[in-house]
Design a protein around this nucleic acid. Structure first.
Length: 331
DNA sequence: AACAATCTCAACCGCCTACGT
DNA sequence: TACGTAGGCGGTTGAGATTGT
């Protein structure tokens, strides 16, 4: 009441962000942390809508984001999770900590949908079940997200989440038990370029990409090792839902603080402890923070699956350890 | 070399839910 | 309790890059 709307649409700049704007945003978040997005344009002088600032941060500037070059395993994960969860990209992204929901969504729409269609047309591929499910709705799946979200009360939502995690586990089990065959059908045409310069987005605006890299370096500079709580995750992030913005940060630098602050509400201590392992101390920690090479989260998933052997205690354990709504904690 | 077609992905839009007043 | 805003999510779009002719 009485508050002005978020974006009055007057004098709000649109379109691509400039490196200068990025820097303004980054330095603001450096000081104040991510969150309270409404205050960002006001305090930074950015002529951007608060939503735009949040989006820019979560999809592009946030540390720990991996771009381009989806691995075979990532693809499989996405395919299976999409088949199970529908187009709930944020939920799917929580299983791929270093990918943004936007990235996954784009990748699905541009690559995977076609591939699955092709596979289906060819009489099924290595992703049999998932592919057929997905193909049925042309990737729009059950349309689950909105409908359910809109109608399910909180308790139901939590139950649904449990079910999601359950089904996701089964899917992962399937995916992992499938022939690991890194079939070349999955290669993308941008692969060569990306292989040459893995850290930059394949394709567009190389010049700007280098700016983004600079910003990334800047970010690395200001994120305190050990996560003293100064990082963006320490103060700002809202916590009502599981979103990509709360994923562990890259290289373990921000990860510890991220996990620590994320777990604020509930348990998740185990996950946090894992993430707090100093960078490079173990392979697991690297993978857990999503900053290893090509197969980041999956080893964790594998151990998770292998861990419980049967669904029995595993399910319970998972629910105990992973705060509802943020399965990525588990990584 | 020039043009057209296709692809990629960053960003916007609108809707929904949670939360504050 | 009602109302309004902020934050979050998924769908869609359009500019730029890439590939094919």
């Amino acid at each position: 009441m009485g508050r002005p709307p978020c974006c009055d649409k007057v004098g709000v700049k649109k379109g691509p962000w400039t490196p200068e704007e990025d820097l303004m945003l980054v330095s603001y978040i450096q000081e104040h942390g991510a969150g309270n997005w409404r205050a960002v344009p006001t305090n930074t002088g950015l002529m951007r809508c608060s939503k735009s600032c949040r989006l820019r941060w979560t999809n592009y500037l946030r540390p720990g984001i991996k771009r381009g070059n989806f691995t075979d395993q990532e693809e499989k994960l996405i395919v299976h999770l999409q088949a199970l969860l529908g187009n709930r990209w944020a939920a799917i992204a929580s299983y791929l900590p270093e990918r943004t929901d936007n990235d996954i969504k784009n990748y699905w729409n541009t690559h995977l949908k076609k591939k699955l269609k092709k596979m289906q047309a060819a009489g099924g591929g290595d992703d049999g079940g998932a592919a057929s499910e997905v193909g049925g709705g042309d990737g729009d799946g059950d349309g689950g997200g909105k409908t359910v979200k809109a109608t399910a009360p909180k308790g139901q939502w939590e139950r649904r989440l449990q079910t999601d995690i359950h089904t996701a586990r089964q899917a992962l089990r399937d995916a992992l038990s499938l022939d690991p065959d890194p079939s070349p059908t999955i290669t993308t045409k941008t692969a060569p370029a990306a292989a040459a310069a893995p850290a930059t987005p394949a394709g567009s605006s190389a010049a700007y990409a280098s700016s983004a890299d600079n910003i990334a370096r800047l970010l690395q500079g200001w994120i305190r090792p050990g996560g003293g709580g100064k990082g963006p995750e320490a103060s700002g992030s809202t916590s009502t839902t599981a979103t990509t913005q709360q994923q562990p940060q890259c290289s373990g630098e921000g990860a510890a603080s991220a996990s620590a602050s994320q777990s604020g509400g509930g348990g998740a201590t185990a996950a946090a402890a894992t993430a707090q392992t100093p960078e490079g101390s173990t392979e697991t920690s690297k993978m857990a923070t999503g900053c290893a090479g090509p197969a980041p989260a999956l080893s964790m998933l594998e151990s998770w699956l292998l861990d419980d052997g049967g669904m029995g205690h595993g399910e319970l354990g998972l629910m105990d350890v992973v705060p509802l709504g943020d399965p990525s904690e588990f990584f």
